[in-house]
Simulated assay, not measured.
Amino acid sequence: MKLKTTRKLMVLAGLVGMLALSACGQANNSTTGGGSNTPEASANGAGNSTASAVGEQVDYEIIGIDPGAGIMKATSQAIETYGLADWKLIEGSGAAMTAMLDKAIKAEEPIIITGWTPHWMFAKYDLKYLEDPQKVYGEAEEIHTVARKGLKEDHPTAYEFLDRFEWTSDEMGAIMTAIQEGQDPAEAAQAWADANTDRVDSWTEGLTPVDGDKLKLSYVAWDSEIASTNLLEYVLESKLGYDVESLQVEAGPMWTGVASGDVDATAAAWLPLTHADYWDKYGEQLDDLGANMTGVKTGLVVPAYVNIGSIEDLK
């Protein structure tokens, strides 16, 4: 009899404990916002708390590149346009930016960067652009080749080759990826040219080679422009007989060098937005040979696992 009574008491005690735990759980949910896990709550504002958490985790910092880049000016404008008063744009370099991106992704941490395509990081990582409903970064851009005035008369072969030169982001991406994986830029460009002779021939067919004429190119230290300039240098030297000097400079000196005639050409002019200020200042002093690549893009970029979709989410 005593054994049965004891068992009944144990069962009752267990039921009381379970009811107490259930009551505590309901109380916690009602006081701490645990109900946000419901579908209704997720659809009605969970994104705001997520964006706030992302901001705190990244110290309200957007990781940028060199201060002279047009994308930095556009990002400063985006901070103002979208009312991101708490956010800071961090200056640096393309290499520093991708190093921080790699570190964040390996740790599965959030990060917000200034990004552009074509770029090898989109092939290596799962990334996404934040939507830009205010169109601060504009529509798709183009990369243009611009030359100094008089290049056509002084070096008609080089001028015609540069005028014909155009390629795709996938073609550029093959060289960028090889460089990123450790291949020397000049060797990567040569390997691509040797593997795509039909493409190279379409740029050089019928042109008369020269005998060691000197030519000077300039470019900014972006992975895309390193790829394109090394390719141009290889073709100009190996197929057309030029002695080419390629100068890696900031965006400002790149434009002023061509405008002043100290540099013959650059294939690294991002228009109409990224280098808009330089075009407005120097455009009339240059010869625009047109786009060598279309459909390029700039904006704010995050890893795909970061649960925000628009620049507006950063407010």
Rank of each mutant, 00 (worst) to 15 (best):
T208L: 13
E171K: 14
Y137V: 09
T157H: 00
T6L: 15
A178P: 05
M121D: 15
E142T: 07
A251W: 01
Y137C: 04
M10F: 12
E166K: 06
L12G: 14
E142I: 04
L21Y: 14
I63K: 11
L21W: 14
M172N: 12
S30Q: 09
M97I: 00
I79H: 13
I113M: 06
V136A: 11
V58C: 12
L231C: 04
V263S: 03
P118A: 10
D86L: 05
G309D: 04
Q183A: 13
A23W: 07
Q183S: 15
G295N: 04
T256L: 13
K281L: 10
Q285L: 02
D170A: 02
M97W: 02
A267G: 09
V220E: 00
L21H: 12
A195P: 05
A104L: 06
N44A: 14
T266P: 02
P67Y: 08
Y305I: 06
E250S: 04
E141T: 01
V11S: 07
A276V: 11
W255E: 03
Q77K: 09
M1H: 04
M10H: 11
I90M: 07
K8I: 07
D277N: 10
D287R: 10
V235Y: 03
I143Y: 06
E139W: 01
G83E: 08
V244K: 05
A267S: 06
V210C: 00
K8A: 10
N44G: 13
F122S: 11
T197P: 02
G70H: 09
A140W: 00
Q57P: 08
E153A: 11
L314D: 02
A107G: 12
R148P: 03
A41K: 12
K315R: 13
L89W: 14
D184H: 05
S169D: 12
V306Q: 08
K214S: 14
M97R: 15
G182K: 01
W203L: 05
H155E: 13
Q26I: 04
D163Y: 03
F122W: 15
M121K: 13
K149S: 09
L247Q: 01
A304E: 14
E233T: 12
K149F: 02
G150T: 07
A13F: 08
I311T: 11
V146A: 06
M18W: 13
G34R: 14
T75H: 08
Y242D: 07
V263M: 04
I226W: 14
L231Y: 00
T81I: 08
Y282I: 01
M293L: 15
A74I: 05
A95N: 11
T81Y: 02
G33P: 00
D66Y: 08
Y305E: 10
W120I: 00
Y234L: 01
F122G: 12
A99S: 13
N307C: 02
S202I: 00
D280F: 11
Q134S: 08
S169P: 06
A107E: 15
L300T: 00
Q77A: 09
E139D: 10
Q57E: 15
G261R: 08
W120D: 03
A43N: 12
I179S: 12
